[in-house]
Structure formats: C-alpha cells, structure tokens
Design a binder for these strands. Structure first.
Length: 853
RNA sequence: GCGGAAGUGGCGGAACUGGUAGACGCGCGAGAUUUAGGAUCUCGUGGCUUAGGCCGUGGGGGUUCGAGUCCCCCCUUUCGCACCA
C-alpha cells in the first residue's frame, strides 16, 4: 500500500488517499499554513513582550548561486530541532535567519560569471529563501537581515564610526598580508599556513596604510571571559590558542659602539657604566636561559637593522633583507628550511654574563611577534641550535636535565625541565625559580635613569584586526580625508555611505579599491571645514558585517538606530548559538570583541554575545568532505522532492552525533523514511477505532515513559541520533507482533517527533482532532518515573566474570533470591561443579558474579 | 613541534558513575503478501566452533571478581595552530 515514490509521481497520485503518507502534499499544506499564520506564534506585540524568551541562533549563510548545500541544511535543521524543542517546553522562541551577502565570495563568483553582484545577490537570496522555507525551519521571516542591504550596512558603518570615536579604529602603515590573486589584504585569521584562505595563493607581505581595530586592547578580557561562557570545549581551546598568551620577560641587550672595541664586564654585571647607547629588546619565555644567550637575532625587517649594521656589512645585510622580502610566507615558514642569516658587524652585551655577543639578522625571526628580536639560546632552543650549528656559534648548556651535569654535551637543544648550570649565582635553581629570580635581579640592575635590564611581560599572539579590503563588494569605510582636518568619520546623519553601482568592479594590483577609480563618488566635502575632501575608497571586511548581525535581528523594525534598547534587553544575549567550528577563531572572536566594545561605549548592557555555543560536525560522503572537485556533492532539492523534508531532516539528524557530523550514504535514508511511514500508518490506525477509551498496554506504557525520559535528556543536549533511535525502538514496541495500537500510546510520540518532522507532526496532531498547531497546543510530554521504572529485570549471571546465563526477576530482587534463581539453572551449576564459591558479587537488578577458585 | 578529537560487525553508529559489547538504522539472507515491485510484514544476521564452548572494541602490558570504559607504553587517522622565541 505504501509505495516508494518515484520522484514524486506516486506521491501525487496518492494525494487523495488520506490513509497513505504523502509527504509533499502534507508538507505543502503545512508550509502554507505557517506562511499564513507565522512559523513561531509571534505577533509584533507578543514579540515585544515575550515572557519566556529564548533566542535560538544559527550562523547565517552566504547566499551562493548554487543554493543551500547539505551542510547548511544539516546545521539549520539541528538548530531548528533545538528551537522547536524549546518551544514545546514553553519557551517563546526567536529563530531568525539572514544572509551574509557581502564579501569576496559573492564578488568573485560575480566576476567569474560576468554579472554584477548587485543583480546576482537578490536572485540568490530569493532562491535561498525558497529552500529555507521548504526545509520547514521555524524561521522568523519578519526579522531577517541582508548584510548588503543599505538599511543594514548603514549600521555596520555606524559601528565603525563608534569605534573610531572611541579610539579603537586606527589607520596605520603596517606590513600586511596581501593576496596577489584576490588582490586585497587579508586579516591574519584569513591566512592559513601562508596561503590565502580563499584561493590558496601564497600570501605576500606589503606595506600599505590600513584601518585596524584595536582588538588587542581586549586580549586579556577575551581570554578571561572564556571561563564565564558555556561553549563547546574545542571552540574554547581554539580561541585560547589563537589569543596565544605567553608569559615571560623582555630583556634589554645594550648595543656596543662599533668602534670602541670589546669592553668585557665582570660576570653578572653589565659592562660599562652608566650605559647610554641604544638597546635591543627581546621577548623570551625562558629568561632563566639568559646565561646561555650567545648571540642575538633581529628579524630582517627590524627597524634597528640599518642603524646598527657596520659599514663593511651594509651590502651583505641589504642583500639578505631583499632576499627575505621576496620570499613568500610559505617558503619562509617551511619547517625543514635550513637556517640562513648574516652578521651585522655589531656586538651586544649579554646583561647577565656581561660578555659581548654578535647580532645577526635571520628570517627565522618574525617581525610581528614579540619585539621582532630574540636572544638566541642554542643550547635550549632547537631553532637557535640549528642556526648556531650552521654558523659555528658556541652552544653552551645552562639547564641540566635529569642525569646531566654542567658539562654534558648537547647534540640537540634541551628544552625540558632541569636546574640551572653555568649561570653564576643562579646555579642549582630549578628553572622556573631561576627565571623568576633572574628577572628580578636584572630589573634591579639599572642604568640610564633607573631603567632596568628586564621586565616581566606577557605577550599575545593575537594581532590587531585589519579590516580594510581593496575590493568592491562590501560596505565603504565611512571615513573622509581632508588635508586640513585629517581623517574624519562620516557624520552619523549622512550614513549610509552608499556603495555605488559599478560596471567595472574588477580589483587590480594597485593596492586600492575599484572605488578609487570613481572620482565623482570619492570626491566630497569635508564635514569640518567644507573644503575639498576625499572618501576612503576601501571597503570593510565581511567579518565586520557578521560581527553584529545577531544584535540587529530583533531590532530590524528600528530605523533610527541599530538596536532597540528595550527589545535588546529582552532578547539578548543569545541563549544558544549553533554553528560550525570553522568559525571558532574568526567570526566568534570578532563578534565577542565588537560586543565588548559596544558595551564599553554604553550601547549594550552585556559583554558576551553568546551565552551558549555548540559546534556541529561535518557531513561527509564516501569518506570525504563534499566538494565539486570530488564529485560527491549531494544536491538537496531532488531528495527533498522525493522523500520529503521531514525524512531528509530526520535522516540528517540520525546519521551520527550532531556535534561530530556523519557519513552520508544514499541508501540510508530508507530507514527514517520507513519510520515516518510506519508512524503515519500507526497513528492513522487509532483514529476512529479508538477514541482514547482504551488504556495503553502496560509494557508499552512503561516503554513510553522510558522513551520520554531519554528524549527529555538527549534532545536538549543535541544528542539527536540516539533520541531518534529511541523513538524508532518505541514505535517498534508499539507495533510488536502486529498488535493494534491505542491512541494513548501514539499521541505523545507525535509530540516527541515534532521537532524533527514538524510537518508530519502537525498533520497527525490535526488528524487526532486538535485544532491548534502542535507547537502551540501540545506540551512536551512529562514522564512518570514510576511508570518508567522496570518491573522485571534480567540479571546477568557470571562465573568468574564470564556470562553463563541470565535470570529474569522482579526489580529489586535480593541477592539471596537471585542466587537461588541462578543456581536453579543447569548451565550455571555446571560451571560451579566441584569448585568452591569464594565470593559473590551482586549488583542489584544487573549482575550476579560467582567467583570460584 | 604545540593543542584537541577519535580508532567498536560488511557500513553509519549505540553502550549512564567499570557490570549481559554491537541499541537504532543501512546492507545482506530466508520466508509471507502482491499482477508486479527498489513497497510492506515476519524471522535471522560479529567471527570461529568438535555445538560444550572459545575468540572478539587499533597493538602490547597492567589494575580488577569483572575493562570498549581506568593506568602505562606504542601505532594509526583526523582537526586547529605553527620557525610564536
């Protein structure tokens, strides 16, 4: 009777047969109802006054021309199940969706197709909207955003202006990552192992004046707050690593004048007094090893290089600097690259030993970390060791590991625990104490106005956020340059600065945006003096668009400000955010920073935007990530057409643990499809034949309460795959042996399945005689612990830990009774025959183990 | 190198604080029903087996009455960061 639909045709034929499950008819009907009456039960009034608000957020998609892919649907379905569950337990759930439509993705695609992103984007958004409705999400279509809409980016620009006014946006010339293929600068976060995140082109270093957000002012807070938010562990770890706190010290190494020869000081006392020349600052996490610093290295780009290079070395140093500049980051960062470098001709004093040491430049020292200079301790740092070996520099030991003496030779750097040796008065100290004491000592060794040679210091890996992009498809940075008044923010009443329509929006290698080619656009008047001025022509990073979209959703009606105070207070921060791990350090970090900054400026009263964050896994197919090049991409539309959105949703959630992802197999969808069929048949079968008079079968009822209990624990924790398995098991129990189900057995199951298969649940709920939506009229069923309790249990009987039988007994059977029952079994007694029982282990209701010898 | 996750049937995956390994589903086998079916229903399905058992959760040790689960060593896969001083 129930046929596998052949691409919908069968389904259409069966639309007139009310006893047959016809997914597309049912889903069409309910989607229409939701469209007419709203998906989530809100009116504009109840939205403002929701008593039990739950903000359920998912990561908004970039609307590609290909349409929604399975990964999107997987993520949105998992989040939607969570939202629908929250609704069934009585929360007022706000579940918005929007479009991250600005950015290089869209622009590159438009370039490739030879179309304008202004034309392409609305088409893509319309297609996404259609698909999102088709999968049955509980999306709030009255509160949607599109980052490329002037009504939205007006406020993106407003945020830029606020940051500028707060001193958190600054323009500085800095070495930046330049992607020669995308022809734009990239944030550090967008460079992966020296390659452009987007196109895998090796990234070059360029010096361009750029706008930066001072996220580093917030480093410690971004780190400390991680302890206060409920996020997936791996995501917290990734943020912690990215922020990269290192504790150590900066040490000062006085530069010896080139012509004064070498004046050795006494050990432990810097030579010369008082010293008044320049010093080289280095950052180290191992100040305890300073006695082993036998040379210094500056990054080739270090500003002191030119000043300290002796005249005889100038040519060689210059050549090295140029060679280093040419190397792209990939080549420079190769692990197995042999160490190169040149001597500057200058010596420094090691402030601990008082001895002169040579200053080199080498590309293994990076300008952007620490001070761009290091003290090299070849005995205890492998990179320094390799360098010292290459250039024949001394490699003394200053830390002795277990079993080492001060003279144990080193055949590689020793970076482990140990005690200090060859370190003057600090010999014998464990290295940690040594580090502390040496810093304290060098702090006290002063020269030049009392400044010491050391200072305890914390360094972070996190850099300021470069947000300028020399591209077209983004919000213009709202800044005006006036020769007289300097860079000024666009007055707030003049926002938005509209992105003009350009027919030629192709980026070029000039280091400026295509907007710089449009004189009538960038020429403007100075907001201060009214004189001739020029707009900033760069646009801002896409990640700025997405750093605050969740703040806008509830306030999309508001036209005179980015956020409505009252609504924001009611709905934010976000109760639960579900998204992919790939944004663990990009989007999630920026969103936290922007939220903190807005809080400090008085626009928000909280500083962490996402109270709870859960990452979802990845759907793979044939053991690999879906990609066009591998040809293993699943196009969702035909599958939804064939099996229905409910089946597709259920299948995706059933594939594996939601947090881990799953392996998509085409045939696997038959399982959930059959389950929904059987559910439909079973529920339909109780209508008319049983109007709630018949009591449920006691065994089925017990199973029902166990199932409710299990789902009530697992669904809120996103453990969907096992929750679905439990529902299948329950339905199997209801149908065991072809028995006839009764209403009380199946009605609660309709509610349990509703978050996963909302259309079918609505249909069955209505057929059961209810007039309201299941999400309005039904409550998540409660379970009765007494009814969920097992009445009889199977106790495993073991002899010496090996299973020899099981006994069935009432729950709570005593050890004596259980033993008696077990000893009545021939298979048990046979194994005890002729042996002494030394001990009996009894775990009530579970296990009985005879220990014999 | 640093940081994290994971190795269980033919496959995806279950297994709470150590307590009957393989739930649920796919696939496969047998049968029923059907004009037919890639539909539905029933039963079976880790391996070996002398049919009593034996062996089985990446490998090797250990703790325990009992280990997928705890401890030690190793192997593999995978993700994030990475010449970060």
């Amino acid at each position: 009777m129930i046929g596998r639909p052949n691409h919908g045709t069968r389904d259409v034929m069966e639309q007139d047969r009310p006893d047959v499950y016809a997914p597309s008819a049912i889903e069409g009907k309910w989607q229409k109802t939701w469209e007419e009456h709203g998906t989530n039960g809100f009116t504009p009034e109840t939205f403002k006054s929701a008593e039990n608000p739950f903000y359920n957020l998912m990561m908004f998609p970039y609307p590609s021309a290909e349409g929604l892919h399975v990964g999107n649907i997987y993520a949105f379905t998992g989040a939607d199940v969570h939202g629908r569950y929250q609704r069934l337990i009585g929360r007022n759930v706000f579940e918005p969706i929007g479009f991250d439509a600005f950015g290089i993705h869209s622009e590159n695609f438009a370039l490739k197709q030879g179309v304008n992103p202004m034309d392409l984007t609305p088409k893509n958004v319309a297609n996404f909207t259609r698909q999102l409705r088709r999968i049955g999400g509980m999306f709030d279509w009255d509160h949607t955003v599109n980052t490329s809409d002037p009504d939205y980016y007006r406020w993106t620009q407003w945020i830029f202006v606020q940051l500028f006014k707060a001193g958190l946006a600054e323009r500085k010339e800095a070495p930046v990552n330049w992607c020669p293929s995308c022809m734009t600068v990239l944030a550090n976060e967008q460079v992966l192992s020296g390659l452009c995140e987007r196109c895998d082109t090796p990234v070059e270093q360029r010096h361009i004046a750029q706008w930066f957000f001072r996220i580093t002012d917030y480093t410690q807070r971004l780190l400390d707050n991680l302890k206060t938010i409920d996020w997936s562990d791996t995501t917290l770890k990734a943020q912690e690593n990215w922020i990269g706190r290192s504790e150590g010290a900066t040490l000062e190494f006085p530069v010896l004048p080139a012509d004064e020869g070498v004046a050795e000081g006494k050990e432990g006392e810097p030579a010369g007094s008082p010293f008044d020349g320049p010093t080289i600052s280095v950052f180290t996490t191992r100040p305890d090893t300073v006695f082993g610093a036998t040379y210094m290295v500056l990054a080739p780009e270090h500003p002191l290089v030119e000043a300290i290079t002796t005249s005889d070395r100038k040519l060689e140093v210059k050549a090295y600097q140029e060679a280093a500049a040419k190397l792209d980051l990939v080549a420079r960062q190769k692990d197995d690259k042999t160490k190169t470098g040149v001597f500057t001709g200058t010596m420094c004093l090691n402030p601990a030993t008082g001895k002169p040491i040579p200053v080199w430049i080498a590309d293994y020292v990076l300008i952007e970390y620490g001070t761009g200079a290091i003290m090299a301790v070849p005995g205890h740092d492998q990179r320094d060791f390799e360098f010292a070996q290459t250039f024949g520099l001394p490699i003394p030991r200053v830390v002795a590991g277990p079993g080492d003496t001060a003279d144990t030779p080193l055949d590689e750097a020793y970076a482990g625990d140990g005690t200090l040796v060859n370190s003057g008065q600090f010999n014998g100290l464990p290295w940690r104490e040594g580090a502390r004491d040496i810093v304290k000592w060098l702090e006290g060794v002063t020269w030049l106005g009392g400044k010491g040679f050391a200072e305890a210091k914390v360094t972070y890996r996190l850099h300021d956020w470069c947000i300028s992009r020399q591209r077209y498809w983004g919000p213009p940075i709202p800044i005006i340059y006036c020769d007289r008044c300097g860079p000024l923010p666009v007055p707030e009443e003049d926002l938005p600065v509209i992105l003009p329509r350009l027919e030629d929006f192709k980026p070029d290698d000039s280091g400026v945006s295509p907007l710089a080619r449009v004189e009538e656009w960038y020429k403007t008047g100075c907001p201060e003096c009214g004189g001739e001025a020029r707009r900033e022509t760069d646009v801002s990073d896409t990640f700025l668009d997405s750093s605050w979209y969740f703040l806008r959703y509830p306030s999309t009606d508001r036209e005179d400000g980015p956020m409505d105070q009252e609504i924001t207070q009611r709905w934010l921060p976000v109760d639960c955010y579900i998204g992919g791990e790939e944004h663990a350090v990009l989007h999630l970090l920026y969103a936290r920073f922007i939220t903190m900054a807005l809080k400090d400026m008085g626009h928000l009263d909280f500083e962490e935007p996402f109270t709870k964050f859960r990452k979802h896994g990845l759907i793979i197919r044939d053991g690999a990530k879906m990609s066009k090049s591998k040809g293993n991409v699943i196009v969702p539309d035909p599958i939804i057409e064939e099996f229905g959105a409910d089946t597709f949703r259920l299948y995706l959630m059933f594939l594996g643990p939601f947090s881990e992802g799953g392996d998509y197999r085409d045939e696997g969808i038959q399982g959930p499809y059959g389950f929904l069929h059987r559910l439909f048949d079973t529920v339909v079968s109780v209508i008319g034949s049983d109007e709630g008079k018949q009591p449920p079968d006691p065994r089925v009822e017990q199973k029902l309460h166990k199932t409710i209990k299990q789902l009530s624990e697992q669904v809120p924790n996103l453990q969907y795959n096992t929750a679905i398995a439990a529902m299948m098991e329950y339905l199997n129990a209801v149908r065991t042996g072809g028995r006839h189900a009764v209403r009380a057995e199946v009605e609660p199951l309709v509610v349990l399945v509703a978050p996963f298969a909302p259309h079918l649940a609505e249909e069955l709920w209505s057929r059961l005689g209810h007039t309201e939506s299941v999400f309005e009229g039904a409550n998540w069923p409660a379970f009765d612990p007494e009814k969920a309790a097992e009445e009889t249990v199977k106790i495993a009987v073991q002899v010496n830990g090996k299973l020899r039988g099981t006994v069935e007994a009432p729950a709570g059977t005593s050890q004596e009774e259980a033993e008696a029952l077990a000893l009545a079994q021939e298979n048990v007694t046979r194994h005890l025959d002729g042996l002494t029982v030394r001990r009996v282990i009894f775990i009530p209701n579970r296990l009985l183990n005879f220990v014999v010898g």
